[in-house]
Nucleic acid binder design. Sequence first.
DNA 1: GCTTTGATGCACT
DNA 2: GTGCATCAAAGCG
Length: 192
Amino acid sequence: MILDKDFYRRHTVTLARELLGKVLVHRSPEGVAAGKIVETEAYLQDDPACHAARGRTGRNAAMFGPAGTAYVYLIYGIYHCFNVVAGEEGAGEAVLVRALEPLEGLALMQARRGKRRPLEKPASGPGNLCTAMGIDRRHNGICLSAPPLFLILGERPVSPEDITTTRRIGISVGQELPLRFYLKKNAFISRR
DNA sequence: GCTTTGATGCACT
DNA sequence: GTGCATCAAAGCG
């Protein structure tokens, strides 16, 4: 049921595409929240936009762990971003998960977002996703092959024709690259 | 309907 | 002190 270590052992770009359609589950004391991954971005070695590009620091240390480790960091002092570590151990590559289509615990996600009106897409955008799922720095460095935070197969497989490739979003360092992937026609992606 | 800006931890100059 | 893999409220017209 839970995707194990072997699932994560493949090229980072391949993993970024393979993660589409898989389901991210978080079992927390507040309840279970789960959603289908609909948007990802790959961050590779020798890429200035990759946090690991300038070596290991306290913040990015989890990126250098084995594939299938969670890398969660704080951005702009307020939002968290959730990544799946990929590639060879020590390479410092990862896949940023940018948006989910809620499958379970929609009300919990909406409550965590804390808006007046319940949001239709509470987990679209990397910062929003972490807020809705209750993911924060406590999850940094943990293994994604066991509860409380893990991935399972989706209901139906995703075929290559279902995937759109674009430039990554919000990158301001270095050359921008076609390393963003999302499910075509899915309403829950963060941007067109 | 845009565009601007404030929120602010952490790594780096 | 500056800038970032962000987001939404505020300002503008």
